[in-house]
Amino acid sequence: MASAKPWYLSRTIWASLVTIATAIAGLTGVPLEGIDNAALAETLLQAITAVSGLIAIFGRIGARDRIG
């Protein structure tokens, strides 16, 4: 692999986190019928991407110095 990406953009990491979360939820008695782990991981990844984009935009708007 020549390039690296942040950990929070990895689908494998998010799928693993969702798997761990659903396992813990199952152990604590939370009903999990009908939950699609892959779809949940994809949705979380899209939400994180959208939030990071908003943070970048608002960070640039609020910046006091020019770039470059």
Rank of each mutant, 00 (worst) to 15 (best):
P6T: 01
A23M: 04
A56P: 00
N37I: 14
S10Y: 12
A39M: 07
W14Y: 06
D36W: 00
A39T: 10
G62A: 10
I24L: 13
L45Y: 02
M1V: 10
G29A: 01
I20M: 06
F58K: 12
T12K: 14
R11W: 11
T22C: 09
L27D: 11
G29Q: 06
L54W: 04
F58T: 12
T19G: 15
A23S: 13
G26D: 03
L32H: 00
I48Q: 08
L44A: 10
L40W: 05
R66H: 08
W14G: 07
A2V: 12
T49D: 02
G26L: 12
L45R: 14
L40P: 04
T28D: 08
A2F: 05
E42G: 11
G26V: 07
W14L: 15
A23P: 01
E33I: 01
P6Y: 02
L32S: 02
L17M: 12
A25V: 09
V51F: 04
R66K: 08
S10I: 07
A56N: 08
R64Y: 08
A21K: 06
I48G: 03
L45E: 06
I35D: 00
G68N: 13
L44T: 13
D65Q: 14
F58A: 15
F58N: 13
A23W: 04
A39C: 01
R64W: 13
R11G: 11
L44S: 09
I24G: 04
G68P: 05
V51M: 02
